[in-house]
């Protein structure tokens, strides 16, 4: 088999072979579903699965963006804070526009939040690439900035959505399209678009090449700065899309919105088979990773094995086992 990480997915994958690296997270997912069913048959009920997959949508969408950043050799710790900040910006602008625009304020809000997300991503990207600051430190800095901004905007309390918009906007989280909850539809659309960009476009191949070996990429005439900055912009756009699905759920942004999401996002990406050191990204693996994380939390509540004090420890063990299943299935 071709060594994909070394040359960064420049060659087309042979179609007739099962790629075990890609299959790893799905094997882990299947194993988890089986264990869950044995523990409590309620686990596989349509209702429970719909709930769990729906609420994994935020992490999944943000993690799809993180797959670009990480496979290009970067890292973004600011996504949780950024999600809270752009959520706040979106609600404030929708509330301000509601008086004049009525429910079309939601459409305007969606436009504004996309712009805010892209700008936040651009700021991260420029600091990392033009400022040449380690991504870990740069985004740790913006993580604090975005968190402080949402705290400032909300006076430490909460920013609730205007009552007149609440019911009109609610279906974006609670509604469904042909029986599939809307956030799941949105996640799938995002993942399809992202895998097209990452696997089928020139940009996607450059992204992987930069992550695999920066110097080689530069000698091949790729603008590393541009490729990495765009990856952060894509990340920002994904955070904004997640915010669009998030707002109708509880209808408010608070200083604790999106707390520690960055860690869940990075975990989802890594469970999905993307190496933290960069190189090849696995979009669908990332989505599976996000669902796995949410399923583990759900399973902890539905099972009666674990004392509430030990839940986090068992979650940690399951994540490590999921990684091992992946490694061994290579």
């Amino acid at each position: 088999m071709t060594d994909m990480t070394a040359i960064g997915s420049i060659q087309h994958e042979p179609q007739f072979k099962i790629n075990w690296v890609d299959a790893g997270p799905f094997i882990a997912l299947a194993a988890l579903l089986l264990v869950g069913f044995l523990v409590n048959p309620e686990f596989l009920s349509a209702n429970n699965i719909a709930n769990v997959v729906t609420r994994s949508a935020f992490i999944a969408i943000i993690a799809v963006g993180a797959t670009f950043v990480i496979s290009s050799g970067g890292l973004d710790l600011s996504v949780g804070s950024m999600a809270a900040f752009v959520t706040g910006v979106m609600i404030l602008s929708m509330n301000a526009l509601a008086a004049n625009l009525g429910t079309s304020a939601i459409i305007a809000g969606i436009g504004i939040v996309m712009l805010a997300g892209v700008l936040c991503g651009l700021v991260n990207g420029v600091i990392v690439t033009v400022g040449k600051i380690e991504p870990f430190i740069a985004t740790l800095g913006t993580m604090g900035i975005f968190r402080a901004l949402i705290t400032y905007l909300s006076d430490g309390g909460s920013i609730p959505i205007d009552r007149s918009l609440r019911d009109a906007y609610r279906p974006v989280y609670f509604g469904s399209l042909l029986g599939v909850p809307v956030p799941i539809v949105i996640s799938i659309v995002v993942a399809v678009a992202a895998s097209f960009i990452l696997y089928k476009t020139k940009y996607g191949r450059r992204c992987a090449a930069v992550g695999a070996n920066e110097d080689v990429a530069r000698y091949s005439g790729i603008s590393v700065t541009k490729v990495r900055t765009i990856a952060y912009v894509i990340q920002g756009a994904c955070v904004a899309i997640a915010a669009i699905c998030y707002v109708p759920r509880l209808g408010a942004a608070t200083p604790t919105t999106g707390l520690l999401w960055e860690l869940q996002v990075i975990t989802a990406v890594v469970i999905g088979g993307t190496a933290l050191r960069g190189g090849k990204g696995h979009i669908w693996g990332t989505v599976a990773g996000a669902v796995i994380l949410e399923l583990i939390a759900n399973l902890m509540v539905l099972s009666d094995f674990v004392s509430e004090y030990l839940v986090a420890a068992v979650q940690g063990v399951i994540i490590i086992i999921a990684m091992l299943i992946q490694r061994l299935s290579r």
């Binding site: 705290t151 909300s154 430490g156 309390g157 909460s158 608070t254 200083p255 604790t256």
Partner: peptide, 10 residues
């Protein structure tokens, strides 16, 4: 404490 959630904001 600085306002970092609802109660401290209060």
């Amino acid at each position: 404490p600085a306002a970092d959630h609802g109660w401290t904001a209060g």
